[in-house]
Design a protein around this nucleic acid. Sequence first.
DNA 1: CAGTTTGTTCGGTACGCTCCGAATGAACGA
DNA 2: TCGTTCATTCGGAGCGTACCGAACAAACTG
Lengths: 168, 168
Amino acid sequence: MSEEDRAAARERVIESMEQSAEVYGLSRSAGRIYGVLYFSEEPLSIPDLVDETGYAKSTISNVTRTLTRIGMVRRRSSDGGGRRVRYTAVREIWFILQDVFQQYVQREIQTTLRTIQRAQAQLPDGNEPETEQIEELRATYEDLEEVVSLVSEFTAAELRDALESYDR
Amino acid sequence: MSEEDRAAARERVIESMEQSAEVYGLSRSAGRIYGVLYFSEEPLSIPDLVDETGYAKSTISNVTRTLTRIGMVRRRSSDGGGRRVRYTAVREIWFILQDVFQQYVQREIQTTLRTIQRAQAQLPDGNEPETEQIEELRATYEDLEEVVSLVSEFTAAELRDALESYDR
DNA sequence: CAGTTTGTTCGGTACGCTCCGAATGAACGA
DNA sequence: TCGTTCATTCGGAGCGTACCGAACAAACTG
């Protein structure tokens, strides 16, 4: 009975992770696999994950690779010298979000900013409308670049504190 | 010659907006349409946008609707009482990002947090592993919720200042 | 050395999304 | 009233992605 409750609670949270995964540009399977690993105390092998999730072996193989690449999961390779690969979830959600932030948002902002700067350098600085608009864009993106680069140095609690205690 | 340069600069930035649109879950057409509107001084009608972008009328119609819905574009309906709808870009990128943040990230975090809280309430607070893991999840998501809700009250420059001046 | 288990890769299918063109529906001007 | 110009909607083509099953490669087990 208690075990059933725990399983139900796990399942709810895992379903929520499936949804979150979609929001962050991952597949539902990635969300579920991460969720199962999140609640598992021991590392799980690919066959284990096949049993737990019902996905095909190939799907597990592919998804675990991308999860490993983006740092949501760790390969605990060859525990006792065995060939069996085993995975654990990285449970620090904040670190994961920071990584996603760096790899997607920060990168995107940097390339955009560079494009804007190049376009601006090429423009004669007369007072055509473009000049002013691009200048405004550049200013915003410079603030943004600084903000996202700073965010990646904070913990969630620090960030919260910094914003709460800031007095305008 | 100067006009060509300006056109080239515009085109570069617009291409960059196409890419950014994809990163933020929009279509390339949405990025281009927004970009054309961004650099246009007068509001543009759908036929105007067809000419400027080369997209089909139906595409423009659909995309402008979603851009309007998420607040990147404004419908300046019926200027002289005419039936012609005209669009302008909302140029304050920071406001747009805040809206996206609110509509996607904040909403996602809130529903996740609520799921976690419900799962936690249902669990007997023994010391099973699930209890602790869900508790940790909840703490992180509560910080996150507070952070994103605060972010939507700051300007980009304020945010930058708050993070730069925070002393740990 | 077979036979088994494990992990990756490859081709294929199903589904959703983007965009187009055509049809439909309104409003305007003669 | 009729033709024209706009805007929306609908069906469909093209394309990328998620996932599956099968084939394959590599390592352990007897």
